[in-house]
């Protein structure tokens, strides 16, 4: 369970999150929708542990553990995963090297031994096949020269291999055509389960046609301003965000 309470965050003196409170239960898929600049991406970075944000107040807990006292890597080892809106290209680092380093780092953090190489290869091959990721892609450096769709599929592949307790999907639909979106959504849906919480951040209702949320939160000016069922997303699609922007200003 992810619990965020009264979170206040700024970067370079600029306030971004303004008393945000949010709970996502195990097995729940929660969606956060909101206009540009409402702080959605900041929320994902702060939960994942990026260092350049200043948390002024509040708490973030995963399964009761205070994440703010943990490094990004420690958070990942506790089972947190972030699907990046724009996955990074890392020249010179082979994808397989990267995947192996990530899996084994998390295993070591849990006190387990490294995954034997044949098992590792088998797991990667199986997961890659489901996501239509070719052997050639796995041979290239991490995300280098990948299309937007390939990068997102690679994110889902990492998620499938690392089996997180909780995943945040930051605008997973950006840069994806409809076919790539379907493939990625299927990958995500396959990872839904009663022990895993998901937080889906998006601008558009479209993504939620493929990953149907249990609950929808509307975010504006750095906090959650409304929560409701899936019908809330449809209403937003029809009316836009103007109401919430004004509401927050008042």
């Amino acid at each position: 369970m992810l619990e965020i309470e009264n979170l206040h965050v700024s970067i370079a003196g600029k306030k971004i999150l303004n008393g945000l409170t949010l709970t996502v239960e195990d097995g729940q898929v929660a969606a956060i929708m909101g206009p540009n600049g409402s702080g959605k991406s900041t929320l994902s970075y702060v939960v994942a542990g990026r260092a350049d944000y200043e948390v002024e107040q509040g708490s973030i807990r995963l399964d009761g553990i205070d994440l703010l006292r943990k490094s990004a890597a420690e958070r990942a080892a506790l089972g947190l995963f972030l699907v990046f809106q724009y996955p990074l290209e890392i020249p010179g680092v082979a994808t397989m090297t990267f995947l192996k380093a990530a899996i084994n780092a998390q295993r070591r953090a849990r006190g387990e031994s490294d995954l034997p190489i044949p098992d590792f290869m088998k797991q990667v091959r199986a997961a890659a096949q489901k996501l239509d990721i070719s052997q050639d892609m796995l041979k290239r450096p991490v995300n280098v020269g990948f299309s937007g769709g390939e990068k997102k599929r690679m994110e889902i592949l990492q998620m499938a291999l690392l089996e997180p307790r909780f995943a945040i999907l930051d605008e997973m639909d950006s840069g994806l055509d409809i076919d790539a979106l379907k493939t990625c959504a299927e990958g995500v849906n396959a990872l839904r389960g009663k022990d895993r919480g998901l937080l889906v951040i998006t601008h558009y209702q479209r993504l939620l046609d493929f990953i149907s949320p249990d609950i929808v939160h509307v975010m504006s000016r750095g906090k959650i301003v409304k929560s409701g069922g899936p019908e809330l997303a449809l209403a937003l699609e029809a009316s836009g965000y103007a109401e919430y922007a004004e509401g927050a200003a008042a």
């Binding site: 994942a48 990026r50 490094s71 990004a72 080892a77 890392i90």
Partner: peptide
Amino acid sequence: AQNLFYLETRGIPTIE
């Protein structure tokens, strides 16, 4: 810093 953060979010400790 961004590449570093990306690797860290996958559980790879900073030094590694």
